[in-house]
Design a protein around this nucleic acid. Structure first.
Lengths: 198, 198
DNA sequence: GGTGCAGTTCAAGCGGTCTTGAACTATATG
DNA sequence: CATATAGTTCAAGACCGCTTGAACTGCACC
């Protein structure tokens, strides 16, 4: 949300930025940033999305140093970003036989990362909210002289929370299902070659 | 996400905080904070949720000053929070006949607020992503010597974005539907017991 | 062992949002 | 009109997460 207002839209600044080092093509820069923004929207770091996008677009594994240059990030930052992405299973670390440095390649399941992490988040989060509301209710019940309608409203609140929770779960599930279609398309591309892309 | 780690859970600190001014019952404090956390999770301000929760739990309209004291917020802050909430239609400003100050009462559709704002956000946001990816594609196409698989991956990326978008829309819709059931419960309560104001 | 490069860690700095508190406007009251 | 109380605005500051850059580890090769 926030990160999406910063600067000139597509074709304005990005097209002629005097990037000295990074040789990102303008179209790459735009796409990479778009993914960065999406990912930030979902509560991740913008640069996590940018790194994944770069790796995905390039198709072949890059080294940390290359990423650093292309995306104009710091050494340390790249290291941490890659660690996160690898832990989430959206990139893969490979060591080419004759090569001295690790290379990182994009997995295709960015979506799995999003749903997975959201799931995880949601689990702990929702559990906590639940517990809190339950606790509040317990406390409220032991308090005498409390108008019954107050308690009633508290209970309604808990109900509401449960429904929102259900909706969230549902979203994650459907989103994953819905997206599995896309993933299969991706996979086709990975193994075979072009064929009209649906 | 972030705001949910701050301090002792239910029953620890909250139960015996030496609140001098605010006479929030412990159970209220917990419930109010729970809502605050949920709302923050959805990208709003924590205190917006807290204010709404307080008003909702109390059932009767409060003045800005009361809210200020109960939730231990600043005068200016309360003013701004109330303005936001009112604009979103989740609280209502009422002036009781003999009263000198405005009072604020909770509407029951917090969920509508959430879905509504998310919808709005999403609209602009998604449009922008779309535009960016389209632009990237346009630029990429005009570039000659570009390996066809790169372009292909870019297109896949756009497809993915569309699917995520669809999932999001679906979520909002189902969430609203799902929740409308709860809302009707709320409404029953509202017309039944508090026909005093309005 | 020494040199150089890849990668990691983390304290410090930066940039962003949220809150505060004081100055201000508005409105009612004697 | 003076006073008081309610409400608004906004610059300054608190706060918090992200990024940086330097110090460090690990490893290969000479």
């Amino acid at each position: 949300m926030k990160g999406y207002l910063w600067t000139g839209g597509p074709g304005s600044s990005a097209s002629e930025a005097p990037q000295v080092e990074g040789r990102l093509a303008p179209w790459e820069a735009i796409a990479v940033d778009a993914v960065g923004n999406v990912i930030e929207f979902w509560g991740f770091k913008r640069n996590q999305g940018r790194v994944w996008a770069l790796l995905y677009l390039r198709g072949e594994p890059l080294t940390a140093g290359e990423i650093e240059r292309e995306l104009d990030l710091s050494k340390g930052g790249v290291s941490m970003l890659l660690r996160d992405l690898e832990r989430w299973g959206v990139i893969q670390r490979v060591r080419l036989p004759q090569d001295t440095a690790w290379r990182y390649g994009a997995e295709n399941d960015l979506v799995r990362m999003v749903t997975h992490v959201i799931e995880e988040r949601e689990a702990g989060f929702v559990a906590r909210i639940r517990a809190d509301l339950a606790e509040a209710r317990r406390l409220a019940e032991t308090q005498d002289g409390l108008p019954p309608d107050r308690l009633q409203r508290l209970e309604k609140m808990a109900t509401l929370a449960e429904h929102v929770e259900r909706a969230l779960r549902l979203f994650i599930k459907t989103s994953r299902l819905d997206v599995s279609g896309v993933l299969s398309v991706f996979r086709d591309e990975a193994t075979g070659s072009r064929r009209g892309l649906k």
